[in-house]
Design a protein around this nucleic acid. Structure first.
Lengths: 151, 151
DNA sequence: TGATATTTGTTATGCCGTATAACTATTATT
DNA sequence: AATAATAGTTATACGGCATAACAAATATCA
């Protein structure tokens, strides 16, 4: 006995009606990918947010917290805890800016740079597995289409 | 004075390095789209989750809570509050199944069906605005690419 | 048939991401 | 010099999501 036939539609993925909404497909697919990414990062002591922040800091040493938050599309206030985490792990340092003593310049440490490289490779490997069904061209096409969505 | 040149990379979107990760682009784009969808639904007393559940129930009347949760990729436990909300708004009813008294069949009310249709149209309209930069073919292409991502 | 396992809906709880308001120290404006 | 704006910070709250535990009902199988 397979059970469940209270419903009218005997089969056919129950969320078919939702699939006409692009946002729904995006959300489901993204949930899969990010959950996977989180799993990859976790053993390295990173979360998606902290990895993203670390990456920006490694690629733009001296960046300010406000710039960082804006780059990642997060609130300044929420970036504080993320940066705290990175600092406590000794992957970055906070340095008060000389010419604007309100601002703080974020600098990656050697350990931070190493950890970022390691995590980046792990993520690339994992994405390669996750997007194995898509060719390189299709992956680029996907990213390109996503980049053309505008609020 | 434009300010900020503590950083080395003078310009060039601070998150460029993250853009090599497809998941990052997916997450940012999805955040935009879902935030927008939430804004559309809010005046109708719906959130994305409740709208999704209502839609499934309207398209598969009699569906069980467990089936619903599975269809939406959420935990059974988390579906309870969502269904509570829909029930309190009188958009659905819970009916104990006769042949399995553990199970509950979810039925949409007339008001629920109307609200779903209204919300669906509002979302379609809004998606049309949000994906205006993509042709119909490109939108289908995007969804198709997303559907081919596998865990 | 009767003991045991499984399933359904449910409650409780906690974590993460996110949003807003308010505060301070500092800098910019006028 | 007075006022406004900005950078970082704290506190707080909400929504999404995950896990564990439980009662009631059903399924399994010795």
């Amino acid at each position: 006995m397979t059970g469940q036939t209270d419903s009218v539609l005997t089969e056919a993925a129950l969320d078919t009606a939702l699939r006409e909404l692009i946002g729904y497909s995006m959300k489901r697919a993204t949930a899969m990918v990010t959950a996977d990414a989180a799993r990859v990062l976790e053993p390295m002591g990173l979360r998606i947010t902290t990895f993203s922040a670390l990456t920006v800091i490694c690629n733009a040493p001296g960046v300010r917290q406000t710039e960082l938050a804006a780059a990642l599309g997060m609130e300044r206030s929420n970036s504080v805890a993320v940066i705290d985490t990175l600092e406590k792990a000794h992957w970055i340092t906070r340095e008060r800016s000389a010419r604007d003593r309100r601002a703080i310049a974020l600098q990656p440490t050697t350990a931070g740079i190493m950890r970022q490289k390691q995590a980046r490779l792990a993520l690339l490997t994992h994405e390669d597995r996750m997007f194995a069904g898509l060719s390189q061209i299709e992956r680029r096409e996907l990213v390109k289409l996503l980049s053309r969505i505008r609020a």
